[in-house]
Design a binder for these strands. Structure first.
Lengths: 230, 230
DNA sequence: CGAACCCTTGACAGAAATCAACTAAGGTGG
DNA sequence: CCACCTTAGTTGATTTCTGTCAAGGGTTCG
């Protein structure tokens, strides 16, 4: 583990309130690993032996069933994943793979559980983090059940524009096939829907997104803080 | 609040490990209320002033957007709901209404947050509960994204049969329109799909479900512990 | 007894998945 | 440096699925 990793990780909301000795003991058991692009480091159904924290890179959470696969989330630093399985000492419900070369910290679940029983600030932080994860999935599910494909796409693209700093033009952070899967549709469907949104103030050229008329696109998306976040 | 309520609530996993004085203070701030059938006691977007605990009856969690509505979950005693919003002091993402006359305990969020900072056993229990809620939504979402309508229906009906004690015949616990919404389809679609499943070992007469050939239905459902639970 | 409401059914239109072919871009190895 | 291969993305044709609209039967409840 690099020396300045420790300092940076210490500042994460999850750890910033911890007692120093608890933090030290937790980090003693933890280690950091580099994964190449495209590596599946977690398979759904496996026992949750580690909590993962993404330090650098990009990770996809996905689920499989009966030969199908779907993207559940895309993670960026700094964030934890597979926290719930770790806590319940239950099998992972999702698999995880790197989308690019990534640096990931792994904390053994047993250490994690032992230490958050001692350090109440850490327990508080975990509660907060977990509640956030829960709300994120609920939002995603609401979008899937309440919106049509076109609406989900429009909402996603406007949301990304906002995250990029309210730009009118930006580049997609993920491949289109993955985006399609995340939004609950096929790649073909996404491709056609993007074209059809050209009448609604959108232009997409390769991975470049141009909001030619954000307001008009907003009429399609009908953004809602209870789905799309603040 | 009835005297034996307190005793029963004390045994809930969420409270059973609490220190007595913390429990007493929490209950002092809490109160129990009876709601008639069909009453919406929580509206999405409202501030999360209370944690709710369902003591008796049946409650639906649902979400709305742009005039549409969808059922997110159906709750039965004894269970908490809206825990995540309470913890984050954030607006509810879902609404809640009673499906039948229900008795519900309400704990002010501020008291809840204050007390789980003091009582680490309570904090542990909340972490555990939250992680369970998270995993439940993930499962639901996996089902929605990975399975077809017929598969979701078959899985749901087999799951209910199992919960009822592996019976070959039982009654639906909810109305079909609500079930359709929960499973992410229209009532008409559910009606037709149920009929089409008669070729796959299922018979439905009104709200009575008969598994004429559970194995054959199982081939449609392809039950999976990572979606349907154990 | 009437008014809702739930459920079902039919007809239709729209949306989405599937299958297949084709282009374009990126990486590999000779 | 080029030929080759792989992969992402697009497009078209087709089928399947799903939602919508409308009507009618049955039930419950006031």
């Amino acid at each position: 583990m690099r020396p300045n990793d420790l300092a940076e990780i210490r500042l994460l909301p999850l750890f910033s309130g911890m007692q120093q000795d608890c933090y030290d003991r937790l980090m003693l058991a933890a280690y950091v690993q580099n994964f190449p692009k495209g590596l599946t480091m977690i398979r759904q159904g496996d026992p949750a032996d580690f909590l993962f924290i993404l330090l650098e890179g990009q990770v996809e959470l996905f689920a499989s069933w009966d030969g199908h696969e779907t993207t559940m989330a895309v993670l960026r630093p700094m964030g934890t994943f597979i926290l719930a399985a770790t806590i319940r000492d239950a099998p992972y419900l999702m698999s995880a793979r790197t989308l690019e070369r990534s640096r990931i910290m792994m904390i053994p679940s047993t250490n994690l559980r032992a230490i958050f029983q001692e350090d109440s600030a850490f327990a508080m932080a975990i509660i907060h983090e977990l509640a956030g994860c829960y709300r994120a999935v609920v939002r995603h599910t609401k979008g899937l059940k309440l919106r049509t494909s076109r609406e989900r796409i429009a909402a996603y693209l406007l949301r990304q524009a906002h995250l990029a700093g309210d730009l009118r033009s930006y580049f997609l952070p993920v491949e289109k096939r993955l985006l399609a899967s995340y939004l609950g549709m096929t790649a073909e469907n996404l491709s056609r829907a993007l074209k059809s949104l050209e009448d609604d103030g959108l232009k997409v050229d390769g991975s470049r997104v141009i909001l030619t008329d954000p307001e008009k696109l907003g009429l399609v998306a009908k953004l809602d803080v209870l789905i799309d976040g603040g």
